[in-house]
Amino acid sequence: MMNQLDDLYQEVIFDHNKSPRNFGPLENADHEAKGFNPLCGDKINVYIEMDGEIIKDIHFDGSGCAISKASASIMTTLLLGKNKTEARELFEKFRTLITVEHDYDEATLGKLVVFAGVREFPTRVKCATLAWHTMQSAINNDGETVTTEKNE
Protein backbone atom coordinates (compact mmCIF):
# COMPACT_ATOMS: atom_id res chain seq x y z
CA MET A 1 0.00 0.00 0.00
CA MET A 2 2.92 2.32 0.63
CA ASN A 3 3.76 1.86 -3.06
CA GLN A 4 0.50 3.53 -4.02
CA LEU A 5 1.36 6.42 -1.72
CA ASP A 6 4.77 6.71 -3.37
CA ASP A 7 3.06 6.62 -6.77
CA LEU A 8 0.78 9.46 -5.70
CA TYR A 9 3.46 11.66 -4.18
CA GLN A 10 6.20 11.51 -6.77
CA GLU A 11 9.33 13.67 -6.52
CA VAL A 12 8.10 15.93 -9.31
CA ILE A 13 4.94 16.65 -7.33
CA PHE A 14 6.90 17.47 -4.17
CA ASP A 15 9.12 19.75 -6.23
CA HIS A 16 6.22 21.71 -7.79
CA ASN A 17 4.44 21.83 -4.41
CA LYS A 18 7.48 23.43 -2.76
CA SER A 19 8.48 25.67 -5.63
CA PRO A 20 5.42 26.27 -7.79
CA ARG A 21 6.15 27.71 -11.25
CA ASN A 22 4.35 30.77 -12.61
CA PHE A 23 2.98 31.49 -9.13
CA GLY A 24 1.37 34.85 -8.41
CA PRO A 25 -0.83 37.32 -10.28
CA LEU A 26 -0.16 38.21 -13.91
CA GLU A 27 0.09 41.90 -14.69
CA ASN A 28 -1.20 41.74 -18.24
CA ALA A 29 -3.89 39.14 -17.65
CA ASP A 30 -7.00 39.62 -19.75
CA HIS A 31 -8.70 36.41 -18.61
CA GLU A 32 -9.03 35.14 -15.05
CA ALA A 33 -11.16 32.83 -12.93
CA LYS A 34 -11.45 31.58 -9.37
CA GLY A 35 -11.69 27.91 -8.44
CA PHE A 36 -12.93 26.51 -5.13
CA ASN A 37 -13.15 23.02 -3.69
CA PRO A 38 -15.69 23.32 -0.88
CA LEU A 39 -14.81 19.85 0.44
CA CYS A 40 -11.27 20.72 1.47
CA GLY A 41 -11.22 24.50 1.17
CA ASP A 42 -8.73 24.67 -1.73
CA LYS A 43 -8.84 28.03 -3.47
CA ILE A 44 -7.11 28.81 -6.73
CA ASN A 45 -6.92 31.77 -9.11
CA VAL A 46 -5.83 31.35 -12.73
CA TYR A 47 -4.63 34.38 -14.73
CA ILE A 48 -4.18 34.23 -18.50
CA GLU A 49 -2.93 36.65 -21.13
CA MET A 50 -4.31 35.63 -24.51
CA ASP A 51 -2.93 36.56 -27.91
CA GLY A 52 -5.85 35.71 -30.16
CA GLU A 53 -6.35 31.97 -29.73
CA ILE A 54 -2.94 31.49 -28.14
CA ILE A 55 -2.15 31.40 -24.41
CA LYS A 56 0.64 33.96 -24.29
CA ASP A 57 1.18 33.77 -20.54
CA ILE A 58 -0.47 31.93 -17.64
CA HIS A 59 -0.08 32.24 -13.86
CA PHE A 60 -1.87 30.92 -10.79
CA ASP A 61 -2.03 31.50 -7.05
CA GLY A 62 -4.10 30.44 -4.06
CA SER A 63 -3.87 27.75 -1.40
CA GLY A 64 -4.25 24.04 -1.73
CA CYS A 65 -2.86 20.59 -1.12
CA ALA A 66 0.27 19.23 -2.77
CA ILE A 67 -1.72 17.56 -5.55
CA SER A 68 -3.74 20.64 -6.50
CA LYS A 69 -0.75 22.96 -6.29
CA ALA A 70 1.55 20.71 -8.33
CA SER A 71 -1.19 20.12 -10.87
CA ALA A 72 -1.71 23.87 -11.29
CA SER A 73 2.02 24.53 -11.52
CA ILE A 74 2.66 21.83 -14.14
CA MET A 75 -0.43 22.94 -16.05
CA THR A 76 0.94 26.48 -16.42
CA THR A 77 4.25 25.17 -17.76
CA LEU A 78 2.51 22.96 -20.33
CA LEU A 79 -0.09 25.43 -21.62
CA LEU A 80 2.29 28.26 -22.46
CA GLY A 81 2.03 28.89 -26.19
CA LYS A 82 -0.84 26.42 -26.70
CA ASN A 83 -4.09 27.46 -28.34
CA LYS A 84 -7.57 27.11 -26.79
CA THR A 85 -8.36 23.83 -28.53
CA GLU A 86 -5.05 22.26 -27.55
CA ALA A 87 -5.62 23.34 -23.94
CA ARG A 88 -9.05 21.73 -23.88
CA GLU A 89 -7.75 18.54 -25.46
CA LEU A 90 -4.90 18.26 -22.99
CA PHE A 91 -7.36 18.70 -20.11
CA GLU A 92 -9.49 15.85 -21.50
CA LYS A 93 -6.46 13.57 -21.81
CA PHE A 94 -5.36 14.50 -18.31
CA ARG A 95 -8.79 13.72 -16.91
CA THR A 96 -8.79 10.34 -18.63
CA LEU A 97 -5.35 9.62 -17.23
CA ILE A 98 -6.44 10.16 -13.62
CA THR A 99 -9.91 8.66 -13.76
CA VAL A 100 -9.91 5.79 -16.26
CA GLU A 101 -7.54 2.85 -16.35
CA HIS A 102 -5.95 2.80 -19.78
CA ASP A 103 -2.65 2.95 -21.59
CA TYR A 104 -1.74 6.55 -21.67
CA ASP A 105 0.23 8.31 -24.34
CA GLU A 106 3.33 9.60 -22.60
CA ALA A 107 4.31 11.71 -25.61
CA THR A 108 1.23 13.97 -25.45
CA LEU A 109 0.86 14.01 -21.67
CA GLY A 110 4.49 14.81 -20.95
CA LYS A 111 5.11 15.65 -17.30
CA LEU A 112 1.46 15.02 -16.47
CA VAL A 113 2.13 11.27 -16.30
CA VAL A 114 3.32 11.82 -12.72
CA PHE A 115 -0.37 12.14 -11.83
CA ALA A 116 -1.20 8.60 -12.98
CA GLY A 117 -1.12 7.52 -9.30
CA VAL A 118 -4.11 9.76 -8.50
CA ARG A 119 -6.31 7.10 -10.11
CA GLU A 120 -5.87 4.94 -6.99
CA PHE A 121 -7.10 7.81 -4.79
CA PRO A 122 -10.60 8.72 -5.99
CA THR A 123 -10.99 11.36 -3.25
CA ARG A 124 -8.05 13.25 -4.72
CA VAL A 125 -9.20 13.48 -8.36
CA LYS A 126 -10.91 16.81 -7.67
CA CYS A 127 -7.68 18.20 -6.23
CA ALA A 128 -5.87 17.37 -9.46
CA THR A 129 -8.52 18.82 -11.77
CA LEU A 130 -9.38 22.05 -9.89
CA ALA A 131 -6.77 24.19 -11.67
CA TRP A 132 -7.79 22.79 -15.05
CA HIS A 133 -11.46 23.55 -14.56
CA THR A 134 -10.50 27.04 -13.46
CA MET A 135 -8.27 27.51 -16.51
CA GLN A 136 -11.14 26.40 -18.75
CA SER A 137 -13.46 28.89 -17.09
CA ALA A 138 -10.90 31.68 -17.47
CA ILE A 139 -10.51 30.99 -21.20
CA ASN A 140 -14.27 30.84 -21.68
CA ASN A 141 -14.60 34.04 -19.64
CA ASP A 142 -17.44 32.54 -17.66
CA GLY A 143 -16.78 34.93 -14.82
CA GLU A 144 -18.24 32.44 -12.38
CA THR A 145 -16.32 30.79 -9.58
CA VAL A 146 -15.65 27.19 -10.48
CA THR A 147 -16.50 24.70 -7.77
CA THR A 148 -15.48 21.08 -7.92
CA GLU A 149 -18.95 20.10 -6.76
CA LYS A 150 -20.46 21.23 -10.04
CA ASN A 151 -17.82 19.97 -12.39
CA GLU A 152 -17.13 16.38 -11.44
Binding site: L5, C65, T123
Partner: peptide, 13 residues
Protein backbone atom coordinates in the same frame (compact mmCIF):
# COMPACT_ATOMS: atom_id res chain seq x y z
CA UNK B 1 3.35 24.11 4.95
CA UNK B 2 1.51 20.79 4.66
CA UNK B 3 -2.12 20.83 3.59
CA UNK B 4 -4.56 18.83 5.78
CA UNK B 5 -5.77 16.96 2.71
CA UNK B 6 -2.29 15.50 2.20
CA UNK B 7 -2.10 14.65 5.91
CA UNK B 8 -5.45 12.84 5.64
CA UNK B 9 -4.36 10.79 2.63
CA UNK B 10 -1.14 9.59 4.25
CA UNK B 11 -2.87 8.76 7.56
CA UNK B 12 -5.62 6.93 5.66
CA UNK B 13 -3.08 4.62 4.06
Amino acid sequence: NIHPHDVGTVLDR
